[in-house]
């Protein structure tokens, strides 16, 4: 059953700016099974969005994939020509973005913007494409799609625009949907609705999903597996339960401590992670998180740690798990409800 739909191997992406090479992604490897939902979590600047843009080959000048391979259904996307990539994008891999207010073109109708992709990839007539657009709007829960299809984006609310974005993304029945911070710009209630919709759609249309977010709370519900990124590297990878209940990396622990949890009442304290992310023009020699890590050791500043696998599929890049490492009293941030 575990057919790998996407496999990224040691991908490095840099932006060559006038102040120097910004190494946004510094060697990332992960995979995605068919029908699986993978969460990529990290704060802004961790390289998570660049990773997804690299997979889509949507990087704009001065960004380039320096090395690595991206196998999608067995074919390396990095080696594909521009024209070949075009027939992959929007067709087999689709993407939705953070801000639905600006992600739709204000001067075309919603219907036009859905039909565009369908006509391009599926060689159908205009009328059929329009039917498809109406179906898609219905699928994502837009009321009276027959009239809404002719509306302009400014006539839609934020949540509806994100639904429309999802409709565009799913219009060609892609094998993989990459959702880059799909809920960040929305109100909390709308966020929940959109997440619910994504979960629902995953079942209905059986696409694989990569959900990118800075909010661990968002992935918990939708994703079965989670990757935690920091400073252009993967810090920890594991099943959702592992990440939430047995985090290995101090960064993951920090993230867990900074999520508000209703089930803990007033007793909890939100603990921010001190400091700020590393400068990726001059990335640190050692572990990128060392400067902010409460358990940092000399070795962390000097050498980049390898991955230590604690159990199958759950691994972390942290010196704490080296056989010679001293034992620490770790505050994991896991707080189970008592009783």
């Amino acid at each position: 059953m575990t057919e790998k739909i996407l496999e990224v191997k040691n991908m490095k992406t840099s932006f060559y700016t006038h102040v120097g090479e910004v190494q946004a992604v510094r060697g990332v490897s992960f995979h995605l099974d068919k029908g699986e939902a993978l969460g990529i979590v990290g704060e802004s600047g961790s390289g998570k969005s660049v990773t997804s843009m690299s997979v889509m080959r949507l990087l704009q000048y001065p960004g380039t994939i320096k090395e690595g391979e991206v196998f999608f259904k067995g074919e390396d996307l990095v080696k594909k020509s521009k024209a070949e990539m075009m027939s992959v994008r929007g067709n087999q891999i689709a993407m939705i973005f953070q801000d639905p207010m600006t992600s739709l073109n204000p001067v075309y109708t919603i219907g036009n913007q859905i039909m565009e992709a369908v006509i391009r990839h599926q060689k159908v007539s205009k009328a059929e494409a329009r039917e498809r657009a109406i179906d898609m709007l219905k699928l994502v829960g837009i009321p009276s799609p027959e009239t809404r299809v002719d509306n302009y984006p400014h006539e839609f609310s934020g949540g509806m625009r994100q639904r429309a974005m999802i409709a565009i993304a799913l219009s060609c029945q892609p094998d993989l949907l990459i959702a880059d911070e799909p809920t960040t710009a929305l109100d909390v209630t709308i966020q929940a609705q959109i997440l619910e919709l994504l979960k629902d759609l995953k079942k209905k249309v059986n696409t694989s999903i990569i959900l990118i977010t800075h909010d661990l709370g968002v992935v918990a519900d939708v994703c079965s597996r989670i990757i935690v990124m920091y400073g252009g590297l993967i810090m920890e990878e594991g099943r959702a339960e592992d990440i939430f209940y047995e985090p290995l990396h101090p960064y993951t622990m920090g993230l867990l401590k900074s999520i508000p949890r209703l089930d803990l009442g007033h007793k909890q304290r939100l603990v921010p992670i001190p400091g700020s992310p590393p400068d990726l023009i001059k990335p640190p020699k050692g572990c990128p998180f060392a400067a902010r890590c409460p358990y940092a050791m000399k070795i962390c500043l000097e050498h980049q740690p390898g991955y230590y696998e604690r159990k199958p599929g759950h691994k972390a890049a942290c010196w704490l798990y080296h056989q010679d490492a001293p034992t620490w009293e770790l505050d994991t941030g896991v707080r189970r409800v008592k009783g």
Partner: peptide, 18 residues
């Protein structure tokens, strides 16, 4: 490991260094 891990590397670092 491509380098030798000496025991002093395992020393925690002090805040000032950071």
């Amino acid at each position: 490991d491509q380098f030798k891990i000496t025991p002093d590397l395992w020393e925690p670092i002090v805040i000032e260094d950071r």
